[in-house]
Structures are given as structure tokens and as C-alpha cells.
Amino acid sequence: MSPAPTMTAAIAARTRQPGFARRLWRRPGAMFSIVVLGILGTGALLAPLIGQALGHDPEMVDLLARLEGPSWVHPLGTDELGRDTLVRLLHGGRVSLLVGLVGAVAAATIGTVIGLMAGYLGGRVDALFMRICDGVIALPMLPLLIVLAAIDLEKLGIPAGIATSEDASVYRIVALVALAGWTGVARLVRAGVLSLRERDFVVAAVSIGCGPWRIMLRHLLPNTLSPILVATTLSVGSVILVESVLSFLGLGIQPPMASWGSMLTNAQELVTTAPMVAVYPGLLIFVTVVACNLLGDALQEAVDPQQAGARR
């Protein structure tokens, strides 16, 4: 999976060429992804305004207007509790996109720190971190995430007020995906650092007395940024998928807050009566994940045209 060590330096060199943005833009998938993610992101950002304009609250239950079809009042109809589907989709997008982005960045941050330390410090530190990394990769993630999502935070000594608050489910799911998803970036960064640490600029930095942290953060990190960027973009999609599965199973985002996954929780009983309720949220997850993957792939190719074909 990880690029050959000598490639990473080449990747870093290429990123700084002026043609990077144009190369990215020319990829067929990239433009599509950027437009789609832009629209979804804008919709999510403006969700409260759009909700106000339409006069709907995403959590307002109206049992007299259950499962209505599309109308001028409810452009996409209502769900099984009479909540406006469009407004809920937009608010759900806020949660899903935020969790995807923050989760992927959190995972990448952990992975970067571990990869830098393993690659530069080497020896025992490297051996320990890489064994942990191998171990985490070899685990059945979904069942473990389900157990982790089900544990009672109060038993960990977290006050009840925080443990059961609405926001806690968002923080918890970000923590979970970060905990599960750091390994890929850690390996990439380690491989990059291994190829860089003997280079002249690092030796020069050591010789003028830079400490290990300064070398890692100021000299090595900037040179490994592009593979990190690609990996993070690709993982936004998988984080959104994990969030949607856990929320769908009732273990992620807790009602009445909506995420695209949690909006599908009751969809299975509605397939006969109101199939469209089940279609919209899933379609948005699908389109978002496709866009993230396409963008990641396009970034990869723009950053490193030769290696791209051989990856995955």
C-alpha cells in the first residue's frame, strides 16, 4: 500500500510545481467532486437559514403530517414523525460532513504524529508503534466499534450530564473513527520519513543543533504533507460510511439529532409505505463518498502521476 520510500520525496517535490492545481482540475473526477462537495457543504452550512425560510425546524414533530409526499410546504415530503425531509437532510448533512471531516483529520493527526516518531526516532519506538499498527489493522473493526459505541461513558467516570448530552454522541463517534483510522497515515508518514531522514537537509538541521521535535515538525512534516493530504481526503469517505453504519444501527448520532445514517434507522419498516424516505439520505451518503473517493484519486494522480496507477 505505502509508496516506495524514494517516491515520497519525488511526490513532495512535484507538489510544489506550479502545474499542480491545473493538473488536479483537469482530472475528470475532480471537477465533479469539488462541485458536488461544494453544493452539499453549502447546503449544510446554510441549513438553519433554509429551515427558517421554509418555516420548519428539523426536530419539530407533526403527527398530523406524517409521511406526506412532496408539496410546496414540504419540498421532499415528511418522515414518519411529520418532520420536513429536506430540512432534516440539510441538518443531517451538517453532522455527517462534520464528523467525516473532523474524524478524518483527527485520525490523520494521530497517524502523522505516530508516523513521524516511528520513522525518525526509530529503534524501540518504531518497533512498538509498528506492532501496534499491525495489530490494529488485523482487528475486526466493525464489531469492536459497535462495542465501543455501546459502552456506558458513566462507567468511565464521565459525569452523567456530559455522557448523555446530545453532543456527546458526536464527540464519541469522532473519537472512535480516529482511534480506528490512524494506521494508514501512520504507515505512509513513516515510509516518507524513512526516505527523508538521511537526506542532506536533515543532516544539516541536526548539525546546527535542531532538536528531534523541531526536525520532525519543521523539516520532515512539510515534506510528507502531500501523501497525508491524499490519504486524508480518501478517508473522509470511509469515515462518513462508518458514521452512517453506526448511526443507522442506533449507536452513533442519537435522536432527535439527525445524521444521514440515523435518518435511515427506521427506514426498513417504511420500505412498503414510503420508500422515498429511505432513498434520499442513502443517496446523499453515496454521492458524498463517491465525491470524496474521486477527489482523493484525482489528488493522488495530480500529486504523483506515476504511482497513481499502481495504488490499491
Binding site: V245, G261, G282, I285, F286, V289
Partner: peptide, 15 residues
């Protein structure tokens, strides 16, 4: 292939 890797399994099953 892109569609295949990106589709949420539970939603695919639902559809």
C-alpha cells in the same frame, strides 16, 4: 468500481 466501494452496505441492502 467507484460506485461499489462508495455505496453504504445497509442502504444497498435496503434498495
Amino acid at each position: 468500481c467507484f460506485a461499489g466501494i462508495s455505496v453504504p452496505t445497509f442502504w444497498l441492502a435496503l434498495i
